[in-house]
């Protein structure tokens, strides 16, 4: 039992939780009848996928992907040599000397991809809400089954 948790559950339980959250969103998208509820489900689905994507970049013991250049050693050297030397040929060499190690920083690439996805997601949510408002104006309801009923009987004002 202990082995099973150590080898199987512990490394993967985060992914399982994301799958469960995604399933909740997916279920709402199919089974809920209210359009706003469907949209909340869609957002939950979307954020579960974004969550999964960002989690691929996690490294144990790594720090945030912002390089701290206020470490004491380089600043001390610069102040001795003046400003010009830092930005010209010498600066290049110095930066090479303090090259960041990839294992010390979280993978930034998934962050970049998902950062734009979140903002685009809210813009598309806005479009979806606009569509549901315009449906409400025509049908007077946001319930899927009532809308379908009205379309079938042709009983709505356009």
């Amino acid at each position: 039992m202990q082995d099973f948790i150590q080898n199987f559950v512990q490394p993967h339980f985060n992914y399982w939780a994301y799958v469960i959250v995604m399933m909740i969103g997916f279920w709402a998208l199919i089974a809920k009848r209210n359009l706003i509820k469907k949209l909340i489900g869609m957002s939950i689905f979307q954020s579960a996928i974004i969550l999964f994507y960002v989690s691929l970049g996690v490294k144990d013991g790594a720090t945030i992907p912002i390089i701290d250049h206020h470490q004491p050693a380089p600043i001390h050297e610069v102040s001795q040599e003046g400003h010009d030397a830092h930005y010209n040929s010498h600066g290049e060499e110095e930066a090479h000397h303090h090259k960041p190690v990839a294992a010390e920083f979280v993978n930034p690439l998934p962050h970049v991809l998902m950062l734009t996805a979140i903002v685009v997601g809210v813009a598309t949510l806005g479009v979806a809400l606009a569509v549901s408002q315009s449906i409400y104006k025509d049908f007077g309801t946001l319930e899927e089954h009532e809308i379908l009923e009205q379309i079938k009987t042709g009983d709505f004002h356009d």
Partner: peptide
């Protein structure tokens, strides 16, 4: 991503790698 982490500071002088890649 390893290349981004290692080269960004030298090539762009931007400490926040996410902004530089973006």
């Amino acid at each position: 991503s390893e290349v981004f982490i290692e080269e960004t500071e030298t090539l762009t002088k931007v400490p926040n790698i996410v902004t530089a890649v973006l």
